[in-house]
């Protein structure tokens, strides 16, 4: 074992025993050896002292828990209760005034709504009017939304990723942190995941593909797919999921999906920004292969959302796919 690795392991053990205080010690790699030798024992001592102090404070807090704080005043409780009751009353009142579900004429109260209800099915070929609106009439908005998701993930990648990390210690620490806090090889979870993951995946794909026919679409279906990926990863670990979903897959899928959407949208601007133009006809409304570009766009949005969901999860968990 090389010296560097041995150092890393000793630091790791130290961290496992002493918790996060030792981690800050680990981070001081910029110091020279002499400085570190002078610094570390001092730091350790201070860490121990700090720990003791924390424990003392905790004990004191437990003793003082019954003592009065400002949340125990009578007016605070009264105000909290009054706020809750008035909120509940407000929501119930609003729920009473909602239009009847499925009523034929309850929704049409403005020209815009009437236009959408009358024209969406003919012009976009979508049975689900909502999909017709968000992917055709307001496709630019949806494009921005998928980019917002992607940019959020980019920020998280910049801050938390351990790719290209030259320091072996940080990698090992991330590994140890992961191994320490997550239950590994949990039999109950694995049994449940074995039953549920296929169903979840199929259901997600169904929601995406059926987005222009029934309630659903790219966003909700993508969220279901991402949840399925997270479940699989949680139950079976990184090694199993890397057989079909790695950093490369993630990059390829999300970038391709976003590029496709952007190109389609750019073409639509180029042709006058009237509709989402495409060579594909609208087909018969109600068929699975209908609605022109709606189905491919739904698939693109679904891919982006699924990748982002899983990416956020795994970045916050370990910093690596």
């Amino acid at each position: 074992m090389s010296k560097q690795k041995r150092d890393a392991f000793s630091g790791l053990l130290n961290w496992l025993e002493n918790g996060d205080d030792a981690l800050s010690d680990q981070m001081q790699d910029t110091l020279s050896d002499d400085e570190r030798a002078a610094n570390v024992p001092l730091k350790k001592a201070s860490a121990k002292k700090r720990k003791k102090k924390n424990a003392d404070a905790r004990r004191k807090k437990n003793e003082n828990e019954t003592a009065a704080s400002w949340t125990d005043r009578w007016w605070y409780k009264l105000l909290a209760a009054a706020l809750c009751v008035s909120l509940i009353a407000l929501l119930l009142f609003a729920a009473l005034r909602l239009p009847k579900f499925g009523g034929a004429e309850t929704l049409i109260d403005s020209d815009l709504t009437r236009f959408y209800v009358e024209h969406t099915k003919v012009e976009t070929g979508a049975m689900n009017i909502v999909t017709g609106i968000i992917l055709d009439y307001r496709g630019f908005d949806t494009l921005g939304e998928s980019h917002v998701l992607f940019i959020a993930l980019c920020g998280v990648l910049l801050l938390l990723s351990i790719y290209g990390e030259k320091d072996e210690k940080l990698r090992l620490l991330a590994d140890a942190r992961d191994r320490n806090f997550e239950p590994k090889n949990d039999l109950i979870l694995q049994c449940a995941a074995r039953i549920l993951t296929p169903i979840v995946f199929v259901f997600g794909v169904y929601i995406i593909l059926n987005g222009h026919l029934s309630p659903g679409g790219g966003f909700s279906g993508g969220a279901v797919l991402g949840a399925g990926l997270i479940l699989y990863q949680n139950a079976f670990g990184y090694k199993k999921i890397q057989r079909f979903f790695t950093y490369k897959t993630f990059r390829a899928v999300s970038v391709c999906a976003l590029l496709f959407y952007s190109l389609a949208k750019g073409y639509h601007f180029f042709t006058g920004a009237n509709h989402l133009e495409s060579g594909i006809g609208t087909g018969t409304p109600g068929d699975i292969l209908s609605g022109g570009l709606l189905l491919p766009l739904n698939i693109a949005v679904g891919c982006v959302v699924a990748c982002t969901m899983y990416g956020l999860y795994t970045m916050f968990r370990k910093g690596e796919f």
Binding site: N180, F181, E182, P183, D186, I188, L189
Partner: peptide, 11 residues
């Protein structure tokens, strides 16, 4: 529920 319980026990 089982997973949260196990996590608490371990950490």
């Amino acid at each position: 529920t089982h997973l949260i319980g196990r996590l608490v026990r371990e950490t």
